[in-house]
Lab assay of single mutants.
Amino acid sequence: GQTTVQVRVPYRVVGLVVGPKGATIKRIQQQTHTYIVTPSRDKEPVFEVTGMPENVDRAREEIEMHI
């Protein structure tokens, strides 16, 4: 079944991970077949990644490449 993982990043890289108009996070979602919730600016900088476990792992690696 599907799993949801929280990926915490430093505040300063949230914009990098999301990309211009969300382009980068969309690409990560498409490439890894996951659904990613982006943290809002006034909340903790935690991305929520949902999908099959192996896909979630890949998405987390993609996010962490920006750190």
Rank of each mutant, 00 (worst) to 15 (best):
G19I: 00
D42C: 08
P20I: 14
K43Q: 13
P53C: 06
E64F: 13
Q6D: 04
E44T: 02
Q2N: 13
N55W: 00
I28D: 03
G15L: 00
K21N: 12
Y11C: 04
H66C: 14
I36R: 03
I67S: 13
Y35M: 13
E64P: 07
P20H: 12
V5Y: 03
M65P: 03
V46Q: 05
H33Q: 14
P10G: 02
P39H: 08
H66V: 15
F47S: 01
T50N: 02
R41K: 14
H66D: 05
P53A: 12
R41F: 09
T38E: 09
Y11G: 13
V56E: 00
I36L: 02
H33L: 05
P39L: 07
V14W: 09
T3P: 02
S40I: 09
V56A: 05
P20G: 03
M65C: 10
V5Q: 09
E48Y: 10
T4D: 04
V49P: 00
R41Q: 10
T32C: 05
V13H: 13
V17S: 01
I63N: 12
D57A: 15
V18A: 08
V5K: 11
G15S: 12
K43S: 15
G15I: 01
I25F: 00
F47A: 01
R12A: 14
Y35V: 15
E64A: 09
M52K: 12
A59I: 00
A23F: 01
G22I: 00
T32V: 04
H66E: 12
P45A: 08
E64L: 14
G51E: 05
V17I: 14
Q29A: 14
D42M: 12
R27E: 06
P10Y: 00
R12Q: 14
E54K: 06
E54M: 05
P10M: 01
R8L: 05
H33W: 00
V18T: 10
A23N: 06
Y11I: 10
G19Q: 05
R12I: 08
S40D: 15
M52P: 05
I28K: 01
R27H: 02
A23T: 13
Q31H: 14
R27C: 01
T50L: 06
K43N: 12
Q30M: 08
P53I: 03
A59H: 01
T32E: 03
E54L: 09
A23L: 09
T4E: 00
V7W: 00
R41E: 13
Y11S: 15
T4Q: 04
P45F: 08
V13E: 09
P10F: 00
Q6G: 11
E48S: 10
R58Y: 07
P39S: 10
V5S: 03
I28H: 02
V46C: 04
I28A: 03
I25G: 04
V14T: 06
V46T: 06
M65Q: 15
G15R: 10
D42F: 11
Q30Y: 04
V18Q: 04
E44N: 10
L16F: 12
V37P: 03
T50W: 06
R27S: 07
G19V: 02
G22N: 04
T32R: 00
H33D: 15
K21W: 07
Y11R: 15
P45V: 00
V17L: 08
V17Q: 06
P10N: 00
Y35Q: 15
V7P: 06
T50I: 07
T4P: 01
P10R: 03
E62D: 07
I63D: 00
L16Q: 14
H33E: 10
Q6E: 10
R27Q: 08
T24Y: 05
I28V: 07
V7L: 06
H33P: 01
R41P: 14
S40M: 13
V37D: 08
R8S: 08
V37L: 09
V56Y: 05
R60E: 03
V13K: 15
F47W: 08
Y35F: 13
S40Y: 12
R27Y: 06
V5I: 15
L16A: 13
A23D: 06
R8W: 08
R8E: 06
F47E: 04
I25D: 02
V5N: 06
V13A: 13
G19A: 01
H66F: 15
K21S: 10
R27N: 05
I28R: 08
I63P: 07
V14Q: 01
M65R: 15
K26V: 03
H33S: 14
F47I: 01
G1D: 12
P45I: 05
G15D: 14
M52A: 12
V46Y: 12
M52N: 00
T3R: 07
E44M: 04
R41T: 13
E48V: 09
A59T: 00
D42V: 07
E61H: 14
P39A: 07
H33C: 08
Q31I: 11
V9E: 03
Q30R: 12
I67W: 15
R58S: 05
V56W: 02
V49C: 04
V13G: 11
H33N: 15
R41S: 13
Q31S: 09
G15N: 10
E54A: 12
P39T: 08
I25N: 04
E64W: 11
V46D: 02
T50H: 09
A23P: 07
T24W: 06
P39I: 05
Q2C: 12
R8F: 04
P20C: 07
T4F: 01
V17G: 05
F47T: 06
R12P: 14
V17C: 05
T38W: 08
H33K: 14
D57Y: 09
T24C: 05
V9W: 02
M52R: 11
R58V: 05
M52S: 14
V49Q: 01
K43C: 12
G15V: 00
V18N: 09
G19L: 00
Q31C: 03
E54F: 01
P20F: 07
M65I: 12
Q30K: 13
I36M: 01
E62L: 15
N55T: 04
K26C: 00
R8V: 04
Q2V: 12
D42I: 09
A23Q: 14
M65Y: 15
E48M: 13
K43P: 06
E61Q: 13
K21E: 12
M52C: 11
T38C: 14
I63S: 01
V9L: 01
S40E: 13
T34N: 02
T34K: 09
E48A: 09
G51K: 07
P53L: 05
V14R: 08
G51S: 00
N55V: 02
T38K: 09
S40T: 12
Q29P: 02
P45W: 01
V17K: 06
Q2F: 14
R60W: 06
D42Q: 12
I63L: 08
G22S: 06
R58A: 10
E44D: 14
V37C: 11
T50E: 01
I63G: 01
Y11W: 15
I36F: 00
M65V: 07
E44S: 07
V46S: 02
E44C: 01
V9G: 06
Q2R: 11
T4I: 05
K21A: 11
K26L: 04
V49S: 01
D42A: 09
R41W: 10
M52V: 07
